[in-house]
Design a protein around this nucleic acid. Sequence first.
DNA 1: CCCATTGCCTTGCGGCACAAGATAGTCGGC
DNA 2: GCCGACTATCTTGTGCCGCAAGGCAATGGG
Lengths: 126, 126
Amino acid sequence: MTKEAPATGDQRRTQLLRGVLDLCLLSLIEERPRYGFELAEALAAGGLEPVSDGSIYPLLARMERAGLISSYRAPSPTGGAPRKYYRLTDAGCAELGRGRADWLAFAGSAGRILTATTQSTGEHST
Amino acid sequence: MTKEAPATGDQRRTQLLRGVLDLCLLSLIEERPRYGFELAEALAAGGLEPVSDGSIYPLLARMERAGLISSYRAPSPTGGAPRKYYRLTDAGCAELGRGRADWLAFAGSAGRILTATTQSTGEHST
DNA sequence: CCCATTGCCTTGCGGCACAAGATAGTCGGC
DNA sequence: GCCGACTATCTTGTGCCGCAAGGCAATGGG
């Protein structure tokens, strides 16, 4: 066979990530300063399948360039290359707030459409 | 100007759509046969901002090619070009089921990460 | 006959997750 | 001392897809 293997479910997660990955990072960074490797682990621990570091580092760079986060370097206590910690800026904090609202609104609408046909009455928005 | 206007919120919705737009269409079609124009309206009515038809038609074509939906033409009762109705195939129905599960799992994880840190000591800005 | 409306489809663009690989710093074994 | 292993960051090329804008087709009314 040529190359079919749609792997539908796998690809959907990738597409879903596009909308919330930046927000997740922002949210995790809000908790406390974090570095790239740690973020990948935290995402996996949070229930999202492992996100490749090739997605995380460019995204962090973009967000820093956008002024949403700032970074500083610190040596690795376990030995190894120095870590680059990120923390939220004011703008990043504001953006995170907006993003959370966006996500809630969107997830609500989408979820409603996706489950609307199984039942029709009685739903509430939180 | 080369590039400007981040329009953050606007773009986020676009990225979010990637993960669920196909599922939404599938879900709406499951309810009853629908045609392109109608789907755009249904999405808007469902709470999602208007999705451009330039996104919907190619997606429908892709899904038909993938065997998830099938189509038939019928004249427009209100006068105008004939409509192209889509209905779910077996595969489409199965895919919709998988997709719903994927969405629920993903939305759960993402939502958890996004709201995990909100409650701690002192959140006062608002 | 002409034109507005309804409805479908195509092209060019831009953004992003991903795989794979390169780079750098530190440590332990030999 | 040198080499391999581990930690951690960054870069390039690829493919996917929503979107804006524009074009085509069919119908019915002025």
